[in-house]
């Protein structure tokens, strides 16, 4: 083999290798590094012996209850298909309201209620003043 051919072969092998590697990495992106799972996925984990994990979903409208004079609150988290009942003691973020996207950290107890140790509010990418929002969605 001439040195020229050797060099060409080297570059070819490198290119093929890099392509395969990038394909592998991209394919792993699809289901990985999830910061949270949806309620439907969480329901499947209910019987597992698990450590803490995060669920992301919307607070169901009309489900929020708070015990008077305490920080204990109870609400239902849903993704439109399944829903999870959540129990939380602590201060809620300012964005927390019914219909809002929320991420909770915690685990299920024996009553299949999700005991949250942390509640974070997720904001979507839409920004608008209140009057326009009222025009767009008259119900809320």
């Amino acid at each position: 083999m001439l040195p020229r051919h050797k060099r060409f072969l080297g570059i070819l092998v490198t290119l093929i290798g890099v392509t395969v590697a990038i394909a592998l990495i991209l394919s792993s992106f699809q289901d990985n590094l999830l910061y949270y799972v949806t309620p439907s996925e969480a329901i499947k984990k209910i019987d597992d012996d698990q450590s803490k994990f995060r669920i992301g979903g919307l607070v169901e409208v009309g489900s929020f209850k708070r015990k008077d004079g305490s920080l204990q609150s109870r609400f239902v988290l849903t993704d439109g298909i399944e829903s999870v009942e959540v129990n939380y003691i602590g201060i809620l973020p300012d964005l927390f309201r019914e219909g809002q996207g929320i991420i909770v950290t915690g685990k299920f107890d024996k009553m299949k209620i999700f005991i949250a140790s942390e509640v974070l509010a997720k904001h979507d990418e839409n920004y608008m003043p209140p009057d326009i929002h009222a025009l767009k969605e008259p119900t809320s």
């Binding site: 092998v13 490198t14 290798g17 890099v18 395969v20 590697a21 990038i22 394909a23 592998l24 990495i25 394919s27 792993s28 992106f29 699809q30 289901d31 990985n32 597992d48 698990q50 450590s51």
Partner: peptide
């Protein structure tokens, strides 16, 4: 350890390993 799917991160590690093998020496 949790018994869930490990293929995702494993793919990533394999991909990174290959990438470093082919590009690292250069």
């Amino acid at each position: 350890i949790l018994g869930t799917d490990i293929s995702g991160p494993l793919y990533f590690l394999t991909g990174m390993m290959m990438l470093s093998f082919f590009l690292g020496p250069w």
